[in-house]
Every structure is written in structure tokens, then in C-alpha cells.
Design a protein around this nucleic acid. Sequence first.
DNA 1: TAACATATTGAACATGTGTTCAGCACGGTC
DNA 2: GACCGTGCTGAACACATGTTCAATATGTTA
Lengths: 228, 228
Amino acid sequence: MCSARSSSSSDDRTAKARIRDGAIECVANHGLAETTARKVATAAGVSPGLVMHHFGSMEGLLVACDEHVAATIRDYKSAAVDQGPGLDLLGALRQSQFGPMVAYLARRLHDDTPAVANLIDDLIADAEGYLALGVETGMLKPSDDPRARAVVLAMWSLGALVLHRHLERLLGVDLTDPNVSVDSTITTYLKPIYEILGEGLFTEEFASQARAAVAAAGQDADITKGQS
Amino acid sequence: MCSARSSSSSDDRTAKARIRDGAIECVANHGLAETTARKVATAAGVSPGLVMHHFGSMEGLLVACDEHVAATIRDYKSAAVDQGPGLDLLGALRQSQFGPMVAYLARRLHDDTPAVANLIDDLIADAEGYLALGVETGMLKPSDDPRARAVVLAMWSLGALVLHRHLERLLGVDLTDPNVSVDSTITTYLKPIYEILGEGLFTEEFASQARAAVAAAGQDADITKGQS
DNA sequence: TAACATATTGAACATGTGTTCAGCACGGTC
DNA sequence: GACCGTGCTGAACACATGTTCAATATGTTA
């Protein structure tokens, strides 16, 4: 069964909220397939029928979960807009307050569900804005295609999040751990990132070669040697 | 039902191979949840019982699929070792011969299943070797932690593959399309990558700031502003 | 008090699932 | 011809699933 809430003390959330939160936690910890109506119901301490009463169907439940997670993240981002541009896309998500929501996102990210897609679009729009601001203030280099660059950076960030199990196995860093930001093991992951984003990967000579190759677009199946 | 093989002509594969291939195609096109014993059986033109006869269980089938995909990719990589170091991790995968296997991988990548984990480990070992070779030949800049850099680059590549639906929506590039290499739309995706890997993202001043910040490791929750 | 809407239950139903199994067809070996 | 192993079938089984629904509690309004 999916793990129930931690405490035995009173829970002032409505049953509807408990069901939603239980579903998020269950998806985060055990995946979509394991998240059944009955397991969610027992995790929330209610009967299976009530899940249907409040959300209509299991798909309705998941849509509600998507929207709740998206809304929570959006609320945080708009509230934290004053503390400077958060160029770190996932640094904002690596907040302990989100609890299992990051792991939930990691599970749902590869399905192109509307609520998640909208959230991603928003994150990218934000990132594009922050990147432009970084260019203005001289922190970041300009790009030929600012939007595409924002998309690529976002895909890399979110992609690494989806593959967090592998990252944990390979580097010992768990991006879904709510306390990962205060843990210093994450530097194993951050250092090469700063290396690449700072100095780049290609040497100057090779970079100009690659630039020329991609400029001569079209069929470049044999020419493209860059990492993709 | 999952799409059956294209042709009506004779199929000289054994029933066991047809079942395995049908399962791979079904997972690639419709996902794990939709890949049931009966659907796979009808796609392969056999009875449900034969699936169990050959693979013992559905989990056994998926393990066999994992291993077959991994073996196919490994075979390709060892056969293509002569045509120069394939720094492009996924460029090798973007070969039309793999058919639905890339899409299959994209579906399975976020589960830490043994066969896939081993494949990833191999891909990273290869990448690390190719990166080292690139450093030797003066194409790539050296790294403080070559293995971690290889891991990060691999996670970015594979992560983007997992998120291919979003990439398609955002940039119009489908990484799971077997013919994506010959299509020029992929340059929309490759150009910002070459930008970042070539010139970097940070300006020199900011790069040294970031380097200093991450050097003073520990609690850097407020300091880290780099993309992650 | 009566009426009503809402929250909640738990048994039931239909369906689809993975898996089992007795049996058949066939091809080779004694 | 008898035997046996293997590929293969299709009906059956036990089970879990999403969903429905009549019934009950509870609180709110008239």
C-alpha cells in the first residue's frame, strides 16, 4: 500500500486534498502503474468511492494532481521573483517545501499531458527572460536563437531530473531528495556543469569547425560530431 | 491493438523473435501500460499462451526486450568503431536501422532496470573514452573530473531523448524519428548545443565567479545561480 | 421539525489482466 | 510404428482494476 501520511495527529486538510496529496505521493514513490484508486483511497483514509465522487475518474485525479503541482510551483516562482533572477531552473524546484512534487514531476514529465506541458512552457518562458536579463547584465553570452537555447537548457535540466535514478547510481546525487541543496554531494554534479557552461567543451579551433559544419546545414549526418 | 508488422509477405523470424519485436514496437508506440500479453500476441500473430511459453512472464519479456535493444546498440557501436570516435552519443542512436528501439529506450530510460542501467554504463564508459581522446587530439578542453563530465553530457543527451515529445512540441524536432539525421530541422536543436558546447554560456567574469562559488562548496543554496 | 444538499460508505459489476494447463501438431529418433 | 520433446493453441482461472450505485451520515437551510 502507498505510504500514508506520517503523523497520527489530526489532519485538517479536506478529504479531497488528502486524496490529491496521497496520489501525488504515491506516483512520486511508486509510479503511475502502482497508483490505483484503492491504494490512494486507503492512503487518504477514505473509501474508493470517494475518489470517484471528487474527481470523476482516475484520469481526473491525475489532471488535478498535475494542476496542483503546477500551481504550487507557479506560486513559488511568482513569490520568489524579488530575490533576483533564478537562472537556476531546477534550483528553484530543489526546495524542500515541494516535498514529493519534484519526484512526481520526474514521473510525469515524459507524458505530454496538458497541465505539465503548460508548466514546462511557463518554465521555459521564465528561463528565456532570465537568460536575456543575464545577457543584458553581461553575465551570459548572447545567442543566435535565445529561445532555442532556453529550450535546450530546460530540456537538459528536466531530462536530468527524469533520469534521477541513473544520476544517483552514477554520481551519488539524488535530484529528487528535498534536502539535496544543503547536501554537498551535489557539487559532484554541479562542477562539470559549471565547467561546460563556463569554459565550454570544445576548443576554439574545433568550435569554429563545428560552427562551420552546422552552418552548412542540410545533410550533416557524417559531419556532426558534437554531443547531442 | 498494437500495430502489426508492415507487410503481408512471409516473415522468416521465429515466433519468439516476432513476439519480442512486437513488444518493443508496442512499448515504443503506446507505452508500457498498453503493452499487454494479448496485444503483443496478436501483433506477433500468435496466441497469448506462447508469450508465456517463451518468456515465462511479461517481466521476462521486457527483460528480453531490454537485452535485445542493448545488444543491438552494442553491436552497432563495436562495428562502427573504425569510422572514428563518435563523440555524438545519440548521433549513433539516430540511425534508421534501430527503428523503434530509440523510442523504446526513451520509454524505459527512467526505470532503473538492470539491462538498461548496464547499457547506460557502457555508453558512458564509451563517451568517457571518446572525450579523453578528444582532449588528447586537442579538440576538447580537459576537465577536472572527466568521468563526471561524461556522465553529465550523457544525462543531458538521454534526458532530451526521454523528453522528445516536449522537444517536438517546443522546437519541432523529433529525436525518435529514425530519419531525423537527414532532416535539416534538427539544426534548430543542434545549433544552440554547439553554441553552448563551443563558446559556453557564461561570460569570463561570471564564469570565474561561479567557479569560486562552487569551490567554496558546502551550503551554496543561495550562491548557485548556474543552470542545473 | 422538515427538507435538502453534500460528504461518505461499501458492496457490487463489468472488464481486462497475467498466468496456467490440458491438449494438439509436427518432426526427429529408436 | 512407438516414443518423445518442442512449438503452439485456446479455453479457463484467479485476481485487480476503474467505475457505479443505493444507502447512510452530516450539516445547512427553510
